[in-house]
Design a protein around this nucleic acid. Structure first.
Lengths: 247, 247
DNA sequence: TCATCTGTTGCTAAATATACAACATTGTTT
DNA sequence: AAACAATGTTGTATATTTAGCAACAGATGA
C-alpha cells in the first residue's frame, strides 16, 4: 500500500536521529533527507510538539525525545511473556554462568526484550530493545526454524563464519528443528558463541526464544551441545508454564 | 509554529494506542480521530511500515510497535545521569527503607528514568518512562524550585491535598529552595508521601531530582523532615560526583 | 442466507505540504 | 570589530498530496 509521504518523512527523521549520537541540526536533517530546510524545520517542530524529539538546551540540536521512552516502556510492559520468562533467565545464568536473553520476532528481526547478567567479568550483554538479524544469531535461527517467518532475502555477512548461502541455512534449520536448539558459532560477533531454544505457548505457537551468549573461550565447541541441552530444558520449562505440552 | 497536520495525526494515533490496552482497529482509530476510515487505514499502514505500530496476529488490531521500544531504550541509554545515580538510589533505599526514584524534566512534566525498589511488601513503585505532573509531586516541585521551568498554567487537583493555588505553590517553592528538599503530602496519590531533592551538575544547573516514596503510615509527618535531610544529603553526594560544589 | 461490520482501493476535489526566497540570529574568520 | 558564513524561521504561491467519498471485498454474526 502506498505510504503517506509526510508521515513517513517524520518517522524517517526519528530513524536518522537514532544513528546520530550527538543529535542533528535542522540543516543536517534536511541534507540527509534531501528535503528543504523549511520542511525539515516544520517537521521537527511538529515532532517536538509531541515530544518525539527534543532540542538539546546547549547545542540546540535535535535528539530523540522523551515520548519515545514513555511509549517504549509501554510496549515492554505489554509483553506478558517477559514476566513469565524472568525466572527462567536466571535459571539459565545459574546453570551456565553466561548471560541469558529473551527475544521475540519483530520487524523480521530478533528483538531483545529481557536479559539476565552473569557475574563473570567477561560477559556478553545485549541491550534491551536491540534488533539483530535472524540468520546469524542463535535466537534468530530458532525463530526461523520454529516460527512462520520466511527466510530473509539477503543473508548479509557479519563475520567470516556468517552463513550467507540460503541452502546451507535451510539445512541447518532442519537440524535445529530436530535437535531443539540453535547455535551461533561466532557468526555475528567474533569471539561470541550463543545457544538458543524456542518458547512455545499453549497452542504450540512459537512466541519467542531464550538463550545464552558467552565468550568462545568458555563456550567451547566441545561443551556447546551440553549447553544446548540445558537451554532446551529450561526453554521447555518456560513453554510448559505457558501451557505448552509437546506431543 | 504551525504543525504539519499529517505528521501530527500520525503521532496522535500513537498517543491513542498508548491508552488502548487491547489495541484499536482501523475504524475505531478513525472514529476517535474524527477522520475517514481510509485516511486512518493509510496512516496506520505507514506507521506499521516503520514498525511504530504492529498488528496483533489474532485480532488484527493495531498496537504500539517494537520500533518504539528500540528508540525508547536508545533515549534511556543516552541519559548519562542515570549511570551515575544508580548507587545513590540504593543509598536512599538503604537509609529509608522506601523506594527511590530518579527523574528529569521532560515535556514540562516529571519523567521517571530510574528506580530502586525497597524490600517492603507495601511499597510505592513508579514505572520508568512514566510522566507525572510537576505541581503535586516532590520530584516535580524540586524541578520547579531549582530549575528554569515556568509554573504550569493549570494546577489540576488529584487529591484533596493537591495545591491548586499558584500563590501557595509559589510560596512553597521558596521554602523548598531554602530547605533544599520538597515534600509531597498525599497531593498526587492518596496514602503516599514523597520527599525529593535536586541533583546539580558542575555548573550548578539542576539536571534532575532524586527522592523516595512511601506509604503515609511509614513516612509520617513527624519523620518526614528527617527523611528530607537524608534525601538532601544523598542528592548532594550525587551532585558532588557530577562536579557540583556549593558556594 | 442475509445482514452487518471492518478494512482496502480508485478517484477527484481541495486542502496541505513543499520549495523558494527573504529575513533573522548566531557564531566564525580575517 | 566588521564582514562573513552558516543556521534556523517565516511568508507565500504552486503543485503535489492528502482526504473524503463511494464502491468493493472480506469477515463475522444473526
Amino acid at each position: 500500500m502506498a505510504e503517506i509521504q509526510t508521515l513517513a518523512r517524520g518517522l524517517k527523521i526519528l530513524n536518522l536521529l537514532e544513528q546520530a549520537r550527538s543529535g542533528l541540526g535542522t540543516t543536517e536533517v534536511a541534507k540527509e533527507m534531501a528535503i528543504d530546510k523549511s520542511s525539515a524545520s516544520r517537521l521537527l517542530h511538529t515532532l517536538a510538539n509531541y515530544g518525539f524529539v527534543a532540542q538539546d538546551e546547549d547545542s540546540s540540536r535535535y535528539q530523540l525525545g522523551p515520548r519515545l521512552l514513555t511509549l517504549g516502556q509501554r510496549v515492554l510492559g505489554r509483553i506478558s511473556l517477559r514476566d513469565h520468562a524472568r525466572p527462567y533467565l536466571y535459571q539459565l545464568v545459574d546453570a551456565t554462568g553466561e548471560c541469558a536473553h529473551l527475544a521475540i520476532l519483530a520487524q523480521r528481526q530478533v528483538l531483545y526484550i529481557d536479559q539476565a547478567e552473569s557475574s563473570a567479568a567477561l560477559r556478553v550483554e545485549s541491550e534491551i530493545g536491540t534488533l539483530s538479524p535472524l540468520h546469524c544469531t542463535a535466537l534468530g535461527k530458532v525463530l526461523l526454524a520454529f516460527g512462520e517467518c520466511a527466510l530473509p532475502e539477503a543473508l548479509l555477512p557479519f563475520t567470516q563464519r556468517t552463513i550467507t548461502a540460503p541452502a546451507i541455512l535451510g539445512a541447518q534449520l532442519v537440524q535445529i528443528r530436530q535437535r531443539g536448539y540453535a547455535i551461533d558459532d561466532e557468526e555475528y560477533n567474533y569471539g561470541v558463541r550463543c545457544v538458543a531454544a524456542p518458547v512455545q505457548d499453549h497452542r504450540g505457537m512459537t512466541v519467542g526464544a531464550i538463550g545464552i551468549s558467552g565468550p568462545a573461550g568458555r563456550v567451547t565447541l566441545e561443551r556447546i551441545d551440553d549447553f544446548g541441552l540445558i537451554v532446551r530444558r529450561v526453554a521447555a520449562g518456560l513453554s510448559g508454564k505457558l501451557g505448552y505440552s509437546d506431543g
